[in-house]
Design a protein around this nucleic acid. Structure first.
Lengths: 188, 188
DNA sequence: TCCCGGCGTTTAGAATACTTAACAATTTTG
DNA sequence: CAAAATTGTTAAGTATTCTAAACGCCGGGA
């Protein structure tokens, strides 16, 4: 019953959200049906808006009151990640991953660039966890086992399954295999 | 980025929360440092409170703005569950569970009364999932394996582990085993 | 350079929220 | 049962928010 409380500095919060969405005070005011002056005063914390006003304004973005108070907008400002910025994760000698946005908080999604060396295998005791996952082979080939099904995927091929179905990845070929995967929620 | 938006009927919402917490308008007003009249007007939707007022009022409960807008208070009104109301879940012939609050939405916690018949076994391919779990043996005995550790628990004994550590439950004895377990988040 | 358009800010007045103090209805208590 | 305390609601006045219209600032184009 206890969500981490965001700062009650509504003004800064609103200004941040507005700028993230690339709106000017006047443009947002027009969409929301309020005056630009009101938004200015609120953003300076010179007034404490009524719920009805705040709701009108957020509707112009659009964003729900719940999302406005729940999410930590300050923490999620990085949008683009250079290849060198991806977080490296290694599993033994044969499997390595590069994660997008490893520094972000409260992610709902995880995207990885994975590399399987020849012979790499996640092991016979199948992987199982909550959520769903999906991937596309970029180069090389990969044998994917999901429940009773098994297939060797070539570049361009893809998979999608509920992660609670036992699954396993192996690289049978002589070349290393690269793929891009996404899963939700993140498992690390 | 999109949470399910609660009704924007702030008045009804506030009245519901206040009553759930067993407070009168005057008592809440006293704690919050506002007048009972203000709370009355807000609850009737005759005014749309300012954020500052609403925050003061919620502080008197106490409840954060984020929680106020996020949670679905109307849905979580059942507090007591008769034995007959527990939801039955069966796994094969040897394991059965009875869940508390199976009808509730947005649970953060799952509590089960589990029964393992003699010889019951969750299997060699160990269980793994997100969260944490905990249990206490009520009757009979149960062999619990968690990672490299294994122990046969007697009535009164308990366990607690991160659910991502592979685990397994078996009933080695001649009698059936009952236990009470809790896990978070719920896995079904 | 000057003008134009857009930006956020400010001010005076209209609209709304909040307080104070009373009221009626119900429950508690002696 | 009657007195007293407690509950939610309401009316009038005060405090606050919001609107309308102006201000000063900055950058781009004749």
């Amino acid at each position: 019953m206890s969500t981490t409380a965001p700062s009650d500095d509504i003004g800064t919060r609103l200004r941040l959200v507005r700028q993230i969405y690339g709106l000017t005070q006047r443009e947002l005011a027009r969409r929301a049906g309020v005056t630009n002056g009101a938004i200015s005063l609120i953003e300076q914390n010179r007034v404490s808006p009524s719920i009805s006003s705040l709701k009108k304004i957020l509707d112009g973005i659009p964003l729900s009151l719940a999302d406005f108070f729940t999410h930590n907008f300050a923490a999620s400002d990085q949008v683009f990640f250079a290849a060198a910025e991806l977080t490296e994760i290694a599993f033994g000698e044969t499997v390595s991953m590069r994660m997008v946005g490893g520094n972000l908080k409260e992610r709902a999604l995880q995207m990885l660039q994975e590399t399987y060396q020849p012979g790499a295998d996640t092991g016979e005791e199948m992987l199982r966890h909550q959520g769903e996952e999906c991937g596309i082979i970029v180069s090389g080939s990969l044998t994917v086992t999901v429940g009773a099904q098994e297939k060797t995927l070539q570049p361009g091929d893809a998979y999608y399954f509920r992660s609670d179905i036992p699954h396993r990845f192996r690289n049978p070929g002589p070349a290393s295999c690269q793929l891009i995967s996404a899963s939700s929620p993140p498992s690390f």
